[in-house]
Design a protein around this nucleic acid. Sequence first.
DNA 1: TGTGAAACTATTCCGTT
DNA 2: AACGGAATAGTTTCACA
Lengths: 153, 153
Amino acid sequence: MLDDRDRRLLAWLQRDADMPLSDLAERVHLSPSACSRRVARLKEEGYIRRSVAVLDRDKMQVPTTVFVMIKMAQHKADWPDRFRESLSDIAEIVEAHRLAGSLDYLLKIVVGNMAHYDTVYKRIISRIELLDVSSCISMETLKDDPALPTAYA
Amino acid sequence: MLDDRDRRLLAWLQRDADMPLSDLAERVHLSPSACSRRVARLKEEGYIRRSVAVLDRDKMQVPTTVFVMIKMAQHKADWPDRFRESLSDIAEIVEAHRLAGSLDYLLKIVVGNMAHYDTVYKRIISRIELLDVSSCISMETLKDDPALPTAYA
DNA sequence: TGTGAAACTATTCCGTT
DNA sequence: AACGGAATAGTTTCACA
């Protein structure tokens, strides 16, 4: 399905999607026209979903990451829906995962400071009955690269 | 520093950085040239760091997310360096955070399946002495949007 | 800032391997 | 089936109002 060139293209595009096609072509030893066709095909076939701008966390004044682990109190049957709703309403929640094992959720939240986090926290707990919430504050981000492994990076 | 238009521009570019400037300009009620100048300024001033292609996790055959919580056994003084080294060596580790409180780390790992995860796990523990490692497998990703809150989305 | 022209970049076509 | 080169189409940037 994907050959070496495709993988190398994808690896580059994950690092820099703004690169001129001529540069990209050079890096994979292809002509610009052939390169254009391949990228179009990778989009068409769904390997490339979209391109997004990566903003600076400090500049945007949301330098702080908090991970929240949640245990649900499943009293009412409608909580999964209300939970999903909260996720889309609250912009500070950038990731939400349902974990294996017990009915646990892990959220990744992006905020400006702890006061900001507190407002988000209150918004979450006001909407759903939670059994247990523990917050883990990130003191230092050692790595944060959205690039997926391509095996030919 | 940032006005409403800048924020709206950034919100759009976080969703779709491929959009032609003419479209982007329309959405914020600006001419293409003025829009071009603003985007250039936002890059220059460091608000926009780069643009990246977002790939499909299933198509790329890395559908599984695992979170790993680590407690260090700090016997040797060089472990922080070796730990950092491992992070850059192992492409499957997409995020690594040092958490507040005890000396704990949280990793986000992206793999094809559990056998793949096991190889990554072994690579990590072979390099550094860890006191405790607990893995949380994501069963379902409810939300995963790299967009930061801009307050004017 | 907006308009329009110029420069640049990307895509499509076509002949070739 | 996929490539490279040339022609075309589209996008961005610049000069100027």
